[in-house]
Design a binder for these strands. Structure first.
Lengths: 234, 234
DNA sequence: TTAGCTTAAATTTTCGAAATTTTAAAGGCG
DNA sequence: CGCCTTTAAAATTTCGAAAATTTAAGCTAA
């Protein structure tokens, strides 16, 4: 479970693995539209694999709740909805804070080092993002993920980590379709800094509160963007 | 999500679906030994399906954390360990109590009715189990699952329900290998009764405490059985 | 003996096409 | 005109075997 997803090898040894990782990335990034049909023949061409490994990859994604399957009718990209986003956010608060608490209580010096390192890397990319612009957004996304992973890495619970990762992926889908970059524009850096400080000084309650606040703030932005989209469509 | 597992159709429309459900049941029930290799050719015969639907079914199980895959080396039944069991139990406590709380706060009359019905059915099967013996154990397992599902069904959070279901399945694996029937022998009925009473009288805290106690008691029995097994092996 | 190498067997993985089912279109009728 | 049935096209699902990889066995040499 050292990978950034709940299961699956770090390096793809089979075509099915490879397809799984690529399709997964594309769903999370929103390149495959939420709710859209996954036509098998089209995908075999797009990802350059045969039917068998493709279906295997999609079946794994069903288990990850990133795709849905209906017998004899095929696969779809898992749809998004405001209601589900609210649910994800609430449950994520529960999981993240529990993991954060345990991580703070159990984390040793290696944990501290890793958190600082992830934070520094994230800060570096935020400065870069300000200068260069959106082209380095994927790198920021990656660093942001690693930063939040590092914070809870010492919680000692593979199942908390697994659930947290699933919810993070789901949240990222909403973030990515509702805002291309405003996430980084926000005072997100300050929020991260505050969390790091609280965590490293072992202030459990403060770190958890700040984490919840961080989630709520992000949720607010997404919610607003989703609502705006709805208004535009009507 | 009306099914008893997180994803997948209620009725199997394809061979892959069918194989998925059957293999899943066998893993949860311990008929496929934890950690054992899943040889594809053997499985195609045992479940009477071809390679393609079989691999698809196994891929789904990987997503459910009931099987693991290693590139070019195949599939295994997910292994069990005492450490993981402790982890599952702790996280399950977190999820179950959160779901229980919300369910009590939001549950309407239909919820109450469903809980009572599930409880009555479970009680009926417990009496039957005392008389007839182990042959009706699978039925009891089923009723027990439905009972605990009914309790949290009104929580209003698909994701909580999904996670809860995953952890319940995982726990069941441990229960089933470590005790064939002592679970029902225990004063488990009284514990269930107490939970139902607390839940239906909307005593959130009490219901949660009792749920945690219930989990802890079950965990104690499993832990002891696992330890005994270890001693015997050494 | 044991470690390393070679070869054979077993197993997993993948392909390409046939079989099945769903979806869309066309035709007929009240 | 709308609705039901029939027919054709499209898409999914499954099979059977070839290709690739791992595992086990046999053999040689230090």
């Amino acid at each position: 479970m050292t990978d950034d997803q709940a299961n699956g090898a770090i390096v793809a040894k089979t075509l099915a693995d490879h397809a799984y990782q690529r399709i997964r990335r594309d769903i999370v990034a929103g390149k495959l539209a939420p709710g859209s049909k996954l036509r098998l023949e089209a995908l075999t061409k797009r990802y350059d694999v045969g039917m068998s490994p493709l279906r295997e990859a999609l079946a794994r994604l069903v288990g990850d709740a990133l795709a849905v399957i209906e017998g004899q009718r095929g696969f779809w990209v898992a749809p998004l909805s405001i209601e589900e986003f609210e649910d994800i956010t609430r449950v994520r608060g529960l999981i993240e804070t529990e993991a954060m608490q345990r991580s703070i209580e159990r984390g040793g010096p290696e944990w501290e080092t890793a958190v600082r390192k992830a934070y520094d890397e994230l800060s570096r990319l935020e400065r870069k993002l300000k200068k260069k612009g959106d082209e380095s957004l994927p790198l920021w996304e990656d660093a942001n993920r690693r930063f939040h992973e590092a914070l809870v890495a010492a919680c000692g619970s593979p199942w908390l980590i697994r659930f947290r990762c699933m919810l993070y992926d789901q949240s990222e889908r909403y973030r990515r379709i509702s805002l291309t970059r405003s996430a980084a524009d926000r005072c997100v850096h300050d929020e991260h800094e505050a969390i790091v400080e609280a965590a490293l000084s072992r202030q459990v309650l403060k770190a958890c509160r700040l984490t919840e606040l961080h989630l709520r703030r992000t949720a607010d932005v997404v919610r607003e963007a989703l609502a705006a989209e709805d208004r535009k469509r009507a």
